[in-house]
Amino acid sequence: GKELVLALYDYQEKSPREVTMKKGDILTLLNSTNKDWWKVEVNDRQGFVPAAYVKKLDP
Rank of each mutant, 00 (worst) to 15 (best):
G1E: 15
G1H: 09
G1L: 06
G1K: 09
G1P: 01
K2W: 05
K2M: 15
K2V: 04
K2H: 05
K2S: 09
K2I: 10
K2R: 07
E3Y: 06
E3A: 05
E3M: 14
E3C: 08
L4K: 13
L4D: 05
L4H: 10
L4E: 13
L4W: 04
L4T: 14
L4M: 14
L4Y: 06
V5A: 15
V5R: 02
V5N: 01
V5F: 07
V5C: 13
L6C: 15
L6D: 02
L6K: 15
L6G: 04
L6Y: 10
L6H: 12
L6N: 04
A7F: 00
A7K: 00
A7N: 00
A7G: 04
A7Y: 00
L8C: 06
L8G: 04
L8E: 12
L8H: 05
L8M: 09
L8I: 15
L8P: 01
L8N: 05
Y9T: 14
Y9V: 15
Y9E: 15
Y9P: 02
Y9R: 15
Y9D: 15
Y9K: 15
Y9G: 15
Y9F: 09
Y9C: 14
D10Q: 02
D10C: 03
D10W: 00
D10H: 07
D10F: 01
D10Y: 02
Y11N: 01
Y11K: 01
Y11T: 01
Y11L: 01
Y11E: 01
Y11S: 01
Y11I: 01
Y11V: 01
Q12F: 12
Q12A: 14
Q12P: 06
Q12G: 10
Q12V: 12
Q12L: 11
Q12C: 09
E13A: 11
E13F: 04
E13H: 08
E13V: 06
E13N: 06
E13D: 05
K14Q: 08
K14M: 07
K14P: 06
K14Y: 03
K14R: 11
K14D: 12
K14W: 03
K14C: 11
S15T: 12
S15G: 10
S15P: 03
S15N: 10
S15M: 09
P16K: 15
P16F: 07
P16C: 10
P16H: 11
P16E: 08
P16Y: 06
R17F: 06
R17D: 13
R17E: 12
R17Y: 07
R17S: 11
R17Q: 13
E18C: 05
E18D: 06
E18N: 04
E18T: 06
E18A: 06
E18L: 03
V19G: 02
V19P: 02
V19N: 03
V19K: 01
T20W: 03
T20I: 02
T20S: 08
T20M: 04
T20C: 06
T20G: 12
T20Y: 03
T20V: 03
T20N: 12
M21P: 00
M21A: 03
M21F: 13
M21K: 00
M21H: 01
M21E: 00
M21I: 12
M21D: 01
K22M: 12
K22T: 13
K22S: 14
K22Y: 06
K22V: 13
K23G: 05
K23N: 06
K23Y: 04
K23A: 10
K23W: 01
K23F: 02
K23V: 15
K23P: 03
K23Q: 12
G24I: 00
G24L: 01
G24M: 03
D25N: 08
D25C: 10
D25M: 13
D25G: 04
D25Q: 14
D25S: 08
D25H: 06
I26E: 07
I26Q: 12
I26F: 10
I26A: 05
I26P: 02
I26S: 07
L27T: 02
L27N: 01
L27Q: 01
L27I: 07
L27K: 01
L27Y: 14
L27E: 00
L27V: 11
T28H: 05
T28M: 09
T28W: 11
T28V: 12
T28Q: 14
L29P: 01
L29N: 02
L29Y: 02
L29G: 02
L29T: 02
L30K: 07
L30F: 04
L30Y: 04
L30Q: 11
L30G: 02
L30I: 15
N31T: 08
N31R: 06
N31Q: 15
N31F: 04
N31K: 13
N31W: 03
S32A: 12
S32W: 07
S32G: 12
S32T: 13
S32F: 04
S32P: 09
S32K: 10
S32Y: 11
S32E: 11
T33W: 08
T33Q: 08
T33R: 11
T33N: 12
T33P: 04
T33M: 08
N34M: 11
N34A: 13
N34S: 11
N34C: 14
N34F: 07
N34Y: 06
K35P: 15
K35I: 07
K35D: 15
K35Q: 11
K35M: 09
K35N: 13
K35E: 14
K35L: 07
K35W: 03
D36L: 09
D36V: 11
D36C: 12
W37V: 05
W37Q: 10
W37Y: 15
W37K: 07
W37C: 04
W38R: 02
W38Q: 03
W38D: 02
W38A: 08
W38N: 02
W38Y: 07
W38C: 09
K39R: 13
K39D: 06
K39I: 09
K39A: 13
K39W: 07
K39M: 12
K39S: 09
K39P: 01
K39F: 11
V40W: 00
V40D: 01
V40S: 01
V40I: 07
V40C: 06
V40A: 01
V40K: 01
E41P: 00
E41H: 05
E41V: 10
E41S: 13
E41K: 11
V42P: 00
V42K: 15
V42H: 14
V42C: 13
V42W: 07
V42D: 05
V42A: 15
N43R: 14
N43L: 08
N43T: 10
D44E: 14
D44Q: 15
D44L: 08
D44C: 15
D44S: 12
D44K: 09
R45Q: 11
R45E: 10
R45C: 12
R45L: 09
Q46Y: 05
Q46A: 15
Q46F: 05
Q46R: 11
Q46W: 06
G47A: 04
G47W: 02
G47S: 02
G47V: 04
G47I: 03
G47F: 06
G47T: 02
F48V: 14
F48P: 01
F48A: 04
F48R: 06
F48Y: 09
F48E: 07
F48W: 14
F48Q: 06
V49R: 00
V49I: 08
V49D: 03
V49A: 08
V49G: 02
P50G: 00
P50T: 00
P50E: 01
P50H: 00
P50C: 00
P50Y: 00
A51K: 08
A51T: 09
A51I: 02
A51E: 03
A51P: 08
A51W: 00
A51G: 05
A51R: 12
A52G: 15
A52M: 10
A52D: 12
Y53H: 10
Y53C: 13
Y53E: 02
Y53V: 09
Y53M: 15
V54W: 00
V54N: 02
V54I: 08
V54M: 07
V54P: 00
V54Q: 01
K55N: 05
K55D: 06
K55W: 03
K55V: 07
K55G: 08
K55M: 06
K56W: 06
K56I: 08
K56Q: 14
K56P: 12
K56A: 10
K56C: 11
L57H: 15
L57G: 04
L57Q: 10
L57N: 04
L57R: 05
L57Y: 09
L57W: 12
L57S: 06
L57I: 13
L57C: 13
D58F: 09
D58R: 12
D58E: 12
D58I: 04
D58N: 10
D58A: 08
D58Y: 07
P59R: 12
P59V: 10
P59G: 12
P59K: 09
